[in-house]
Design a protein around this nucleic acid. Structure first.
Length: 241
DNA sequence: CCAGTATCCTGCAGGC
DNA sequence: TGCCTGCAGGATACTG
């Protein structure tokens, strides 16, 4: 379902509300307010949130700008418009179909116990499983590709055909990749940046994503480019099995 | 149930 | 230089 970006409605709802908390669920961002309610945001492929001086010129494709009483403007910039911002009334988090269906947070304490058997029970390619937000919340193409390379697992291998031990290793690698990426400020390929405008430096650590045709960092075999779920899927034909 | 494809949209790189 | 094609961090509807 394509989501609306109803600016007049957002203006009515957000006027005179105070932002009390900022949360994340999977790839969704939630700004909770008082009086109760939340602004739900997804950045899609090309979206960014920017905290800018209210007088600074707005970048092209600025679809939403929230003037904060504290001074700056919170802006949603999204050239491709796959992202969205939507108002949620109290309780909306539980009724929103995609939000309520989100799976395990990979960085949560229970992920290492819950995920391996869950992945083992499915007959889809493991990469598709990692990208399925209803199973695991928050993994995108880059981090799926990286985690599988690190774990030495072929992206096309069916979940049911991977031992629980190897799936446990995979989940550990997913967590490590995500943690490192967050520490490095994310992965800037083209237009990603943090709200203050700084870039993410995880891209320099990518060993597989965007490296098809280059030698594998582990075994020097040329990385191949596959396609799973319509997404580019580089992998090492020797050390990913 | 599952896999693959099309779709939404703009920008950019590469080929000719 | 300019035009065309394909591809890009995501999610979902549809088809077979």
């Amino acid at each position: 379902m394509r989501r609306p970006l109803d600016v007049p409605l957002l203006r009515r709802r957000l006027m005179d509300r105070r932002i009390t908390a900022i949360r994340r669920r999977g790839k969704y961002l939630l700004l909770d307010t008082d009086p109760a309610g939340s602004l739900l945001i997804h950045l899609g492929m090309s979206g960014r949130m920017l905290l800018s001086d209210a007088h600074a010129p707005r970048l092209a494709h600025t679809h939403l700008a929230l003037r904060l009483d504290s001074g700056p403007e919170l802006r949603l910039v999204d050239p491709r418009r796959f992202g969205f911002a939507q108002w949620l009334d109290p309780g909306g988090e539980a009724t929103d179909p995609s939000l309520s269906a989100l799976g395990v947070e990979p960085l949560s304490n229970e992920a290492e116990d819950l995920l391996p058997p869950l992945l083992h029970a499915r007959r889809s390619p493991i990469k598709s499983l990692l990208l399925d937000q209803r199973l695991v919340a928050g993994i995108g193409n880059i981090y799926a590709v990286e985690s599988l390379w690190r774990a030495g697992i072929r992206p096309s291998r069916l979940g049911s055909r991977i031992s629980l031990g190897r799936l446990e290793r995979l989940v550990r690698e997913v967590r490590a990749v995500l943690q490192e990426a967050v520490e490095q400020g994310g992965t800037t390929l083209r237009d990603f940046s943090a709200p203050e405008g700084n870039f993410g430096y995880f891209a320099v650590r990518l060993q597989a994503y965007g490296r098809a045709g280059e030698p594998c960092a582990r075994c020097a075999t040329e990385l191949r480019e596959g396609r799973i779920g319509g997404r580019s899927t580089p992998f090492c034909p020797i050390c990913q099995r």
